[in-house]
Design a binder for these strands. Sequence first.
RNA 1: CGGGCUGUAGCGCAGAUCGGUAGCGCACUUGGUUCGGGACCAAGGGGCCGUGAGUUCAAAUCUCACCAGCCCGACCA
Length: 592
Amino acid sequence: MNFLGIDAIISHLFFGGIMLYSKMLIPTLREDPKDAEIDSHKLMLRAGLIRKSAAGLYSYLPLGFRALLKVTQIVREEMNSAGALEILPPFVTPAELWKETGRYDTMGKEMLRFKDRHDNEMVLGPTHEEAFTNIVRETVHSYRDLPVNLYQINTKFRDEIRPRYGVMRCREFIMKDAYSFDTDEAGLEANYQAMRTAYRKIFKRCGLEVDPVLADTGSMGGSASEEFMVPSQVGEELIVKCHECGYVANTERAVAHREYSVSGDPLLAIAEKETPAVKTIEELTAFFSTTPDKFIKTLVYLADGAPVVALIRGDMEVNEVKLKNAAGAVELQLAGEEKVREVTGAPVGFAGPVGLKNVRIIADISIPPLVNAITGANKKDLHLVNVNPGRDFKWEKAADIQSVQAGDLCPECKRPLNAYHGIEVGHIFKLGYKYTDAMNVIFLDKDGKEQKPIMGCYGIGVGRTMASVIEQSHDEFGIIWPMSIAPFHILIVPVNVMDAAQMEAAEKLHKSLSSRYEVLMDDRDERAGVKFNDADLIGIPIRITVGKSFAAEGKFELKLRNSKEKEFLGEAELIKRVGEIYENEMAGFNRD
RNA sequence: CGGGCUGUAGCGCAGAUCGGUAGCGCACUUGGUUCGGGACCAAGGGGCCGUGAGUUCAAAUCUCACCAGCCCGACCA
């Protein structure tokens, strides 16, 4: 074989050869499997792309595996051309690495730990910052070796509490993850932007519309971070977007523009007010005949086990991710009734910041400007009026801990924000020095001085990307694959395999098209209806039928999966037309 | 881990109230008729009724325990 480049070789290895439906394993299902809830999951099972082996564990069958490989190949090409280097580290990592950064204790149960026969502690990699940082620590010692951006396309395991939606959120999954190391922040910025651009190309080539949205950095740590979101009703993330100026952010970290008018009213004397069984903001608003923004809502949380009191204006909701970050906590949850009583001395509904002792208080930025506010008195059936922040209570920290919703104002241009659900298919982070510090990665700069590299990391859920494509591109009959990741480009359907002339023509066509395209031929002795229905289900973009029109006038029927039109063409015209369609579709994925 | 539900053939389900040793549709095998949108006829194969214990002459069915899976909440690509 000529040297064609790694990408061509990979394509050849996986996709070469003449493919017959009868020799494939495509176990299509007529009925929806009862466990599948969302369309992509149903269709992946029905079209014979995947089979489940246990909760959150799936096998990719031939058709699904081919599509998956197409996605990984696109990822690989774009990563390579962005200057990243592919490596293959082990899926199992020793616990010591995780202990170095402290994540062995902070990662939680989604990280599956086990011991080998020598009693060494091991981890099934849920992510690979430590492993990659370690490789760089061992191999990179000079600024001349930097920057590097290493990546893998490899199995990950996260012992999800609740796997669901098939391959969309499973426990074992394929992920592309890259880790960049730079000498300085400018270098990181360049790598980050290169990845951002590569990601847009990757998803575009997969036929997906994505939004890069501002995101929370979560347990990875770091400063800037963006998620690549596929808008979808089944998405598990809530995104707010401004159609005016383009501001897009995950609600976990979105901010809203708000006016905090400081009234010139004189501060009145604090006073108790009996409020028998009046607990919710709604009830209180009615009871005091005022508006919700006059109240200080007081919520008790447990941050890593210790109680934290969050204060927010009555007309707003606390965003727990923001609060968690403000509190510097790893885990955060609303405290139970007993804990509330313990901290405040009163039942739920009567908590307030005045007089609270020995507990951290985090106030939303909406709190300090309040004047003569109303809040719980930490006694049953009692509230306080004319409470003034600063005078009557203090707080450890004031931070933006408020939830942002559709209708709130854009922080950039002050127009109302819209909200939609999205599937997170990729995530890019600027990690900073978190890992290189913890693991003491050193290189010598030009002046021979010891420095630490600055890191970024960049992930793509490969299986999830594939599922998102199906979620976004299907109809009542089945999958509609984009040409770029379809398991085959062309499906040839001889209607009657017993008809020698038809079969001969179909085989000849199969041979001549196979040199340039991936062609599957449905040579099964099945009725036309069965073949057409399976064809629609598995969603190959180009369908060529050899049947009636061939018998009558020697013409092939050309139909595209994404259209209802049929064309009837002789062989030469057909081949030309297929070429046009293919080239045109593929070019479309690369256009800006 | 909390709340709700389900485990019977490869898939979808019935049978359970009323205990008597398992059935339907699809899929599968064979033969025939059919043949452009999930055909028909005939004959077949396939089940430790999730696991274990208990009650009983007898358990898919009643009791208890366990296991697994699904849905709703906290984790995330």
